[in-house]
Measured scan of single mutants.
Amino acid sequence: MRVFPVYAPKLIVKHARIFLTGVIWVKDLGRLEFEKGRFLLPRKSLPKVKQAILELNELIEAQN
């Protein structure tokens, strides 16, 4: 598990694309899981977490 002390979308996306499957922890967002290079949306999450995951997945799609 990698810990990101700040929310840096480009760096987080780079990590997810390299490792494809895993878990990261982002300060103020908490634990985020990714599989096959995409972030998974938890069943229950705060609106800011949901927005961050959608933003990260959009960045991943834009890079493909």
Rank of each mutant, 00 (worst) to 15 (best):
2 R>A: 14
2 R>T: 15
3 V>L: 01
3 V>E: 15
4 F>E: 01
4 F>P: 01
5 P>T: 06
5 P>I: 14
7 Y>Q: 01
8 A>I: 13
8 A>L: 11
8 A>D: 09
10 K>L: 13
10 K>T: 13
11 L>M: 07
11 L>K: 06
12 I>D: 02
12 I>F: 00
13 V>N: 02
13 V>C: 06
14 K>H: 13
15 H>I: 04
15 H>P: 01
16 A>P: 01
16 A>W: 03
16 A>H: 00
17 R>T: 11
18 I>P: 01
18 I>H: 14
20 L>V: 10
21 T>M: 07
21 T>K: 14
21 T>E: 11
22 G>Y: 03
22 G>L: 03
23 V>F: 04
23 V>H: 11
23 V>N: 05
24 I>K: 03
25 W>L: 13
25 W>N: 04
25 W>S: 05
26 V>E: 00
26 V>T: 02
26 V>N: 00
26 V>R: 00
27 K>W: 13
28 D>R: 14
28 D>H: 14
29 L>A: 00
29 L>S: 00
30 G>L: 02
32 L>A: 00
32 L>M: 14
32 L>W: 01
32 L>H: 01
32 L>G: 02
33 E>V: 13
33 E>Y: 15
34 F>A: 00
34 F>N: 02
34 F>W: 04
35 E>K: 13
35 E>L: 11
35 E>H: 12
35 E>R: 14
36 K>M: 09
36 K>Q: 11
37 G>E: 05
37 G>M: 08
37 G>H: 03
38 R>P: 03
39 F>G: 04
39 F>I: 05
39 F>K: 06
40 L>H: 07
40 L>C: 10
41 L>W: 07
42 P>V: 07
43 R>T: 06
44 K>S: 05
44 K>T: 06
44 K>H: 07
44 K>Y: 10
44 K>R: 13
45 S>N: 11
45 S>G: 08
45 S>Q: 09
46 L>Q: 13
46 L>K: 15
47 P>Y: 09
47 P>D: 08
49 V>P: 03
49 V>H: 06
51 Q>N: 09
51 Q>A: 11
52 A>H: 06
52 A>F: 02
52 A>V: 07
52 A>G: 02
53 I>Y: 04
54 L>Y: 11
55 E>L: 07
55 E>G: 04
56 L>R: 01
56 L>F: 02
57 N>M: 03
57 N>G: 02
57 N>S: 02
58 E>C: 11
59 L>N: 04
59 L>S: 04
60 I>E: 03
61 E>L: 09
61 E>T: 09
61 E>I: 11
62 A>P: 04
62 A>S: 10
62 A>R: 09
63 Q>N: 09
64 N>G: 09
